[in-house]
């Protein structure tokens, strides 16, 4: 093989090895990122069947700690507890089939005590079934996450306002 080809092949091998390493042994930051994306996927996977709704509520609940608190700011009373939150999330989807959530700009900071602070933007997309028009309601959230049984779970959600 010629020298430039060898150099290119070596670079490709290094990149592949690095990607494999990241995939097989992800850091806590990557685990948090994947966990939150998995939550969004489960949240968006709507079902209208009775048993499916229960399963979905349990699945959504597995992303939170038992004592989760959701504080969306002034004017909205805080939501306490995993069961309350999972039930609300599960009931929301079947009524509004054209409602999806996207989590973007996820930035986790992991601490030594097994917790992490995460900032992210949630984009709630609604598509009108009548007109097809799409609207987005975006919110910045600050999450406190905790590693429980090897899995990262959300223990606190606080809305952050860009405006004072």
């Amino acid at each position: 093989m010629r020298r430039p080809t060898l150099v290119l092949a070596a670079i490709a091998v290094v990149i592949l090895a690095w990607l494999s390493w990241r995939m097989l042994w992800p850091s806590d930051e990557q685990r948090i990122h994947r966990r939150l994306q998995a939550f969004a996927a489960d949240f968006n996977a709507g079902t209208t069947e009775g048993l499916g709704t229960v399963t979905r509520a349990a699945k959504i609940g597995s992303y939170f700690t038992d004592d989760i608190v959701v504080d969306l700011g002034p004017g909205t009373p805080p939501i306490h507890g995993r069961d309350t939150l999972a039930g609300m999330a599960a009931r929301l989807q079947p009524r509004t089939a054209a409602f999806t959530v996207e989590l973007v700009d996820i930035t986790p900071v992991v601490h030594d005590d097994g917790t992490a602070d995460v900032s992210l933007t949630t984009a709630f997309k609604r598509q009108s079934l009548a007109t097809g028009e799409e609207s987005i309601d975006a919110r910045e959230l600050a999450l406190k996450m905790k590693k429980v049984g090897g899995e990262w779970r959300v223990m606190r959600v606080t809305a952050v306002s860009a405006f004072r």
Partner: peptide, 11 residues
Amino acid sequence: AIRLAGPSVVY
């Protein structure tokens, strides 16, 4: 443009 948690969604 005013960013939220990052530049993906802005006001």
